[in-house]
Simulated assay, not measured.
Amino acid sequence: MNNEKLPGSTEKRESLNGLRELAAEQHEATSENRERESTRESKAERLENARRETLEAVAKAEKENRKETEQSEPSPAERRKGPISKQEREKAFAKTMDEVQSHMSAPSRTFSKIIHNKAVEKTSEVVGNSVARPNAILSGAVCSFVLVLITYLVARAYGYQLSGTETIAAFGLGWVVGLVYDYFRLLIIGKDR
């Protein structure tokens, strides 16, 4: 039997050919979609690769920058490894004094420069550590107050006139007592505050 002679077979052939064409079109559309997706994926992959390379380049640049910074200027912890030298202390002191004095008025700045002169500071330290000890000054003031008060009350009761040296003499006596107290305290305890 011949397929052409059967009634419906032409229709079947045409529908079969139509299905084949439809399948071919679907196949082409699917392959185009795959190509587009692969192109999209390759674009996405290229973008991801570009991002990755950029991040790596930035990280590398930061590392090099850190190395240059570390090599050019040591950190404060590295600078403090050993004891601070006298030159470093003097340099830091001068820098701090310049900074502080820049915020002062002209008369205050002049006074500050005078009292922070090395000779004045050394003299002040020597006097403060020997003659002008806090305990000696305190005991001199207390002794002066008490002795002059007693002397004044006695002189007033008996009609004597005070000469004015009583205060200085009482202060000197109290000052000597304060120095002796400091000396013995230092011998017993063995340390200065």
Rank of each mutant, 00 (worst) to 15 (best):
A136Y: 01
V100I: 08
A170D: 12
N17V: 15
R156L: 12
R109H: 10
K86E: 08
I115A: 08
Q101V: 07
L179V: 10
K63I: 00
V100T: 09
P83A: 01
A132M: 15
R20L: 14
R13N: 06
E99S: 03
F93R: 06
W175H: 15
A119R: 03
L22K: 08
G164S: 14
E35D: 07
G164R: 10
T69D: 02
R185A: 12
N33H: 12
S72A: 12
I189S: 07
L138Q: 11
A106W: 12
Y183K: 09
A23C: 06
Y181E: 14
K60C: 01
N65Y: 06
S108H: 12
F145G: 12
P7L: 05
A44R: 13
M104L: 14
K43W: 04
T69G: 07
N49W: 11
E70C: 07
Q161W: 02
F111T: 05
E45C: 00
E78W: 00
E166I: 11
Q101C: 14
E78V: 04
H27E: 14
V131N: 05
A24P: 08
Y160R: 13
G8I: 11
L179P: 05
A106Y: 12
A92M: 10
Q161H: 13
A136M: 00
I115P: 06
Y158G: 05
R20P: 09
Y152K: 15
P76I: 02
E21Q: 10
E32A: 03
V127H: 02
E64Q: 14
A23I: 13
A24Q: 02
T96Q: 08
T96A: 13
A23R: 11
S85Q: 05
E48Q: 10
L153M: 11
K118L: 02
F93W: 08
Y181K: 08
S72V: 09
R193H: 13
V120C: 10
W175K: 03
F145R: 02
E4R: 08
V120R: 03
E78R: 03
R40F: 03
S112E: 07
H27M: 13
R185H: 06
S108N: 13
G174Q: 01
E48S: 00
R79C: 08
Q26A: 14
E45K: 12
E73Q: 03
A169H: 15
N135M: 09
P83H: 05
S85V: 05
Y183S: 07
A106Q: 14
R79N: 07
T110M: 09
L186T: 01
G128E: 03
Q87I: 07
V126R: 13
V154I: 13
P134H: 01
A23N: 05
N117L: 07
W175I: 06
N65H: 00
S102P: 05
T110C: 07
V120Q: 03
E68R: 06
G18M: 09
A155V: 11
R46C: 07
Y158K: 15
E32R: 11
